[in-house]
Design a protein around this nucleic acid. Sequence first.
DNA 1: CGTTGGGTTGATCGACCTCAATAAAAGTGG
DNA 2: CCACTTTTATTGAGGTCGATCAACCCAACG
Lengths: 247, 247
Amino acid sequence: MAQLRIIEPLTLAALCSHDATVHGCAPCRHRSLSLCAALDSDELGMLDELSKSVSFGASETLFRQGEDAEFVFNITSGSVRVYRSLHDGQRQIVGFALPGDFLGLSMSDHNAFSADAITSTTACKFSRQSFSDMLDHEQHVLRLLHKMTSHELNLAQDQMVIMGCHSALQKIAAFLVGLRARWNMISGETVHIPLPMNRGDIADFLGVAIETVSRNLSSLAREKAIVIVPDGVRVLNIRRLESLARR
Amino acid sequence: MAQLRIIEPLTLAALCSHDATVHGCAPCRHRSLSLCAALDSDELGMLDELSKSVSFGASETLFRQGEDAEFVFNITSGSVRVYRSLHDGQRQIVGFALPGDFLGLSMSDHNAFSADAITSTTACKFSRQSFSDMLDHEQHVLRLLHKMTSHELNLAQDQMVIMGCHSALQKIAAFLVGLRARWNMISGETVHIPLPMNRGDIADFLGVAIETVSRNLSSLAREKAIVIVPDGVRVLNIRRLESLARR
DNA sequence: CGTTGGGTTGATCGACCTCAATAAAAGTGG
DNA sequence: CCACTTTTATTGAGGTCGATCAACCCAACG
C-alpha cells in the first residue's frame, strides 16, 4: 500500500555507496548529511541488501517518462538530467541530479519524467517495491523520505522563483549561484563551478534559447564576474552574481 | 470501507472541517478521497484535538516569509496566494492554495514564503509541533502527509514546465488548463473556471506583466476559446487551450 | 458625483528568439 | 600525427514578442 513518488534532485547525500573502494552502506554513512546518519546499523544492513550498484555512460538512460517506475536511484557519482518531453518536441529539464541526490521515487506506477546520465554516472539502485515495503516497517526511513520530499519541494519552488525572472541574465546568474551552493555541499569548492551539462541543457532548464545562455555567460565573463573554463566556470565576483540573482 | 466519490475533492480534500454546520474531523471524512478516508476514528479524534478552525478576510495574512513556522494549515474554503517577496521589490507567486490544499508543509523552522487570503478563507490550523509529534506515533498520518507533500511537489514541477514556455499565450493557456483540472477535482465543474486571484497575481505567478495577462486572455476570448466572465472564465474550446498548453 | 482600484487597450522600445555564419572541440579513420 | 567529420559553442543581424509607460473604461463606494 506504500506509495512513493518522484523525487527530483535531492541534496541530502548518498543513501548508499558501492564504489570501487568501499562496499555496503555503512562506509557511506559519513557522507550523509541527514539520511544514513540517522539510521542504525540494522537499517543500514537492510538498505545494503536492497541496493545494487549500477553505472551509466554519458547519455545513457536511467528511466524513461511513461514507463513503469521499477527502481529508485541514489546518485553516487556523475550527473543526471531529469526532464519532461513535450508533444511539440520541446524538452523541459526540471532538474540536474548530482552525487547524493535521489531519483525516481514515484508515487504513481509510471515515471512522470525521463532521466539520463550527462557524464559517466554511478548510482545505487533499489527495487521500488522492496524500498516501498521497507517504508511500511521502518518509520524512521519514511520520516526521512518525507523530509527529503519537503526539501525537494523547496528546491522546486526556488526554481520557480528563478524562472519568474524577467531577465535572462538574472536567470543565468541565479542558476550559477544555486549550482555553486550545491557543489559546495558536495566538494567544499566555491570558486570552480563544474558545468557537466551542455548549453542546450541549461537553456532547456531555464526556458531560454541556447544562444541566450552563451551570450549571457560571455557577458558575465566580459565584465569579469566569471571566467569560462573547460567544463565549467570560475567565479571571480560572487557578490555580482548574487546581486543579479534576486533571491 | 469508506465510499469514494469521484466528483469529490481529489486534491486530498480537507483533513478537517469546522464550518458552521458540522464540527470535528469525522463529518469531513466523506469529503476526502484519500486522507481522512484512510484514518480510523481514533486518529480522526486526535486530529480534532490538534486542529482549530480559523478564518481570514480577503488579503489577510496566514503567515509571513521569514517568521517562525508555527502552524500548518488545511484550507477548507476560499483561496490563498503563496509567494516570495524579493529584495528588488518584485513578488514571485509560487502557488495558489484551494480548498483541500495543505500549507506550511515545505517549511523548516521558518517560513520560506508568505501566504495571504485572496478571498474570504477558512482553514484548519494545526500547531506544527503537535502535528509533528502525532506523525511520530501515527504512521498512517505520516504516509498521508508524505503523499500530500508529493502532490505539492507535482504541482510545483508542473509549474516549472509551464514557466519554461517561451510564449506568454502558452503560459496563460497552461495556467487555465491546470486550474480547470484542480477546480474539477473540487467541484466537478469543467466549464466555469473561477479566477479568485486578480490579473496581477496571475502575472506574478507566470512571470509576465499584468498587461500581457490581460491581452492574452482577451486574445483567447477573441478567438472564442474562452469567455471572460466576472471572477473567472468559461471554457468554450478546451481542445484549443490544451493544444496551446504543451503538456 | 468624485475617488479608487482593477482591467483593458494603444504606442513605443528593448530584450530575446530565430536564422545564419563562424569558431572551437571532440571524435574518426587513415 | 594529421585531415576529416561531427558536435558544441560563440558571435552577428534582423525581426518579433512582451515590458513599459500611458490613457482610458468601468464598477464599487462613500
